[in-house]
């Protein structure tokens, strides 16, 4: 029997290996494998955020088109599948990506923390008394563990706000996202919250979209210089698009002054649907 590292070396392992699961589950048992999961789910999440932002640009076409866009999400898959079936599948996929991304992020942060336990931790970060300055790490890379949770909390708020309508109460009209968005974001504190959260998201993506190339081993001297640019572009696009909603609502561009349909569920939404169809015809 070979001696194990624990017996042979004076330094005891900091992390203990657990029994190996069968392939491919064992990939999730190691940090490098888990970074693959974090990067792949990160790509999925960026894809979602990008699509979410682009889709919401329909708000600039007015209440009817926005309603039509929201409806179209429910009818993905056409007549082949029950209404909303594909949407629910997408939601399920999105949720599992979130869970995996969060779990790997939290567990790997813990691992790094334990690896630095004897290294002068100050509020969870490794510090040297000699005033360790960061030479290469960016503001974005150092704040991933803050921007991540900010995004997570914001997503919960955002769902309660515009999906479940908890805060809008009677003002919330299911199936009329234009109305809900303009009502919610016209409150200044809410607009500020959306702005802060989306700035955090942009920072997260600025580092994440660069980091994932390394994590996935996508590295080619000929193209490496493009990786930083791509991450900046993605973060910038998502930031500009998403910030436009709270800012332009506050500026009065997303309001209901020119609204033709009544506000309210049944007939209001029928009116929106007819108006959208009228535009097409």
């Amino acid at each position: 029997m070979a001696q194990t590292t624990g017996e042979r070396y004076r330094v005891a392992p900091v992390h203990r290996r657990s029994r190996e699961w069968p392939f491919p589950l064992n990939l999730y048992q190691t940090a490098v494998g888990r970074k693959w999961v974090m990067a792949l789910t990160g790509i999925g999440l960026i894809g979602f955020v990008l699509a979410h932002m682009v889709g919401n640009l329909h708000v600039y076409e007015g209440p009817a088109r926005m309603h039509e866009y929201a409806e179209s999400l429910r009818t993905i898959g056409g007549g082949l599948v029950p209404k909303s079936a594909v949407l629910w599948l997408l939601r399920l996929g999105l949720l599992s990506m979130f869970v995996l991304h969060l779990h790997s992020a939290i567990s790997l942060s813990r691992m790094s923390r334990a690896s630095s336990e004897d290294a002068g931790l100050v509020s969870g970060a490794k510090r040297y008394a000699g005033g360790r300055e960061h030479v290469a790490a960016t503001y974005a890379s150092r704040t991933m563990r803050w921007t991540g949770p900010i995004i997570a909390l914001f997503i919960l708020y955002h769902l309660a706000d515009l999906t479940w309508g908890w805060w809008l109460g009677d003002d919330f009209v299911a199936g009329d996202p234009y109305h809900n968005v303009s009502t919610s974001l016209s409150a200044l504190p809410v607009a500020i919250l959306y702005i802060v959260a989306n700035v955090a998201l942009a920072f997260h993506i600025f580092h994440g979209a660069w980091s994932m190339f390394q994590s996935l081993g996508i590295n080619n001297p000929r193209y490496n210089h493009l990786r930083r640019g791509l991450a900046t572009l993605l973060a910038g696009l998502i930031l500009v698009g998403n910030l436009s909603f709270p800012i332009l609502t506050q500026a009065g561009l997303i309001d209901e002054d020119n609204r033709t349909c009544p506000i309210g569920e049944v007939e209001g939404n029928t009116c929106l649907a007819e108006e959208a169809e009228g535009h097409q015809g």
């Binding site: 900091v14 190691t30 942060s109």
Partner: peptide
């Protein structure tokens, strides 16, 4: 890699090491 992970933390691509 797996021996490394018994002792050390998880890389987040800061780039401090190369510096």
């Amino acid at each position: 890699v797996e021996t490394m992970e018994e002792f050390f933390g998880s890389c987040t691509n800061h780039g401090e090491c190369t510096e």
